[in-house]
Write a protein that binds this DNA or RNA. Structure first.
Length: 160
DNA sequence: GCCAACGTTGGC
DNA sequence: GCCAACGTTGGC
């Protein structure tokens, strides 16, 4: 008989361009969930499809903007499901090689836990406790990266 | 707008 | 399977 194990929560950093989906968009509608559309990288997709669990913690990161950094805390709140934008010819995320029968791109929903002060990329780079974060590594372009327990605690400490 | 870094594509 | 060309990311 298989042992019943309590999965420890996972932690993630997810990049969003605030022009598309900012922490304020999410905060504007209490209780709203945000489908994480537009991921078109297999590694990032696989994290959502294979590894994330409902309840996992998310560092909501603003990228490609004037003030990049962590803007809030969120939480994975759905199972993986097909990203509907891949089937929409009018979407910039349309993928002609995907089909509803064999969807290529999956997403999860996230919900806001709380907006935080902006923990800027600059401050992250200067924080000794955050040096291991994938998002800070040279050349990193992944829009979704795993965060270790220690990194998660360090971010909480900086935000406290 | 620049450009380093890296992922994807496709010919071979 | 190799790898050059090309496209994208994302901070600056």
């Amino acid at each position: 008989m298989k042992a019943l194990t309590l999965a420890s929560p996972g932690f993630w950093l997810m990049k969003s361009e605030p022009d598309e989906a900012s922490i304020d968009h999410l905060a504007a509608t209490p209780g709203a969930t945000l489908p994480w559309t537009g991921v078109r990288n297999y590694q990032a997709r696989n994290f959502m499809r294979d590894t994330m669990r409902i309840g996992d913690g998310v560092l909501f990161y603003h990228s490609s903007c004037a003030q990049p950094g962590i803007a809030g805390l969120a939480e994975v709140c759905s199972l993986p499901k097909p990203d509907p934008t891949q089937f929409d010819p009018s979407s910039p995320y349309f993928d002609a090689k995907s089909s509803p029968q064999v969807p290529r791109w999956m997403l999860v929903d996230v919900r806001l836990v709380r907006k935080t002060r902006l923990l800027s990329l600059d401050e992250m780079r200067r924080s000794p406790t955050l040096q291991t974060m994938r998002v800070l590594q040279r050349g990193n372009r992944l829009s979704i990266t795993p965060v270790t327990d220690a990194e998660w605690r360090a971010v909480q400490a900086l935000l406290a």
